[in-house]
């Protein structure tokens, strides 16, 4: 399901400046069970990476 209220990650954009902010909260489990966190996998711009 696609459920914004359960998402651990958030992308927002300031429409006055076009500055894009990415945030991740403490509930993120790096999509446990997945090979790659889905936000990393589906970020077409390569803006997200896992840093261990």
């Amino acid at each position: 399901m696609f459920d914004p209220s359960r998402s651990s990650t958030h992308v927002s954009r300031d429409n006055d400046t076009a500055v894009i902010t990415l945030s991740i909260d403490s509930t993120c489990d790096l999509c446990e069970g997945e090979e790659t966190p889905l936000c990393v996998k589906y970020c077409a711009y390569g803006a997200r990476r896992v840093s261990r």
């Binding site: 399901m1 696609f2 459920d3 914004p4 209220s5 359960r6």
Partner: peptide, 11 residues
């Protein structure tokens, strides 16, 4: 502004 889920039939 909302936070209602969209469910998937066959994920």
């Amino acid at each position: 502004r909302g936070s209602q889920p969209i469910t998937v039939a066959e994920p």
